[in-house]
C-alpha cells in the first residue's frame, strides 16, 4: 500500500469504500488542490433499471493498478494520489471506485485525476456484471 512515494494508497477490496480514507491518504502540506472522483452504482443503464451489480477482478489487478498510478505520477506533478476499487456484490448507491490526486495547483490535479480514473477503467482487469429489473443481465463493456 503506502510506500513513502506519492502513491499513498492503492487497494482493490470487498469492504465498503470510504471517501474520507482516500482524502486523508492524499492530504499533504504541499497540496494546494485536491481532486476526488467517486464512481457509484447507478439505478439505470441503457434505459433499463439496474437491480444489482457485481465486480470481479483478475489476480493481477493490484499490479495493473500500480502501473496506472505510476504512470500518472510520472506524467503529472503529483504530490499524492490514491485509488481504491470495490469488488463483490454492490447495490445502487454503493461506492464502486474512489480516486484522489493532490497537486500544488488545481489544473494539474484535475488532469492527473482524470487520467487516473480513465486509465483505471480501460487497463485494470476488473469486470462488471449488471442484473436488471426485468431479469436480464449483461457484462458491461462487451459489444
Amino acid at each position: 500500500m503506502a510506500d513513502g512515494s506519492v502513491i499513498r494508497l492503492l487497494a482493490v477490496r470487498e469492504q465498503p469504500l470510504s471517501v474520507d480514507e482516500v482524502l486523508a491518504a492524499v492530504a499533504d502540506p504541499a497540496a494546494g488542490g485536491t481532486v476526488v472522483f467517486i464512481g457509484t452504482v447507478r439505478d439505470e443503464d441503457s434505459g433499463k433499471s439496474v437491480d444489482a451489480l457485481g465486480y470481479s477482478a483478475h489476480p493481477t489487478v493490484d499490479d495493473a493498478l500500480r502501473t496506472v498510478a505510476e504512470r500518472v505520477a510520472a506524467e503529472h506533478p503529483v504530490i499524492a494520489l490514491a485509488a481504491v476499487h470495490r469488488v463483490g456484490d454492490l447495490v445502487v448507491g454503493d461506492l464502486a471506485v474512489v480516486v484522489a490526486v493532490s497537486c500544488a495547483h488545481r489544473g494539474d490535479a484535475f488532469a492527473a485525476a482524470r487520467q487516473l480514473i480513465d486509465d483505471l477503467k480501460s487497463t485494470v482487469p476488473i469486470w462488471k456484471h449488471q442484473t436488471f429489473g426485468d431479469g436480464s443481465d449483461e457484462w458491461v463493456g462487451l459489444p
Partner: peptide
C-alpha cells in the same frame, strides 16, 4: 492461457 474479456472497472 487466460481469456480476459474487456475490462469495465469504475
Amino acid at each position: 492461457i487466460e481469456v480476459l474479456p474487456p475490462f469495465a472497472g469504475g
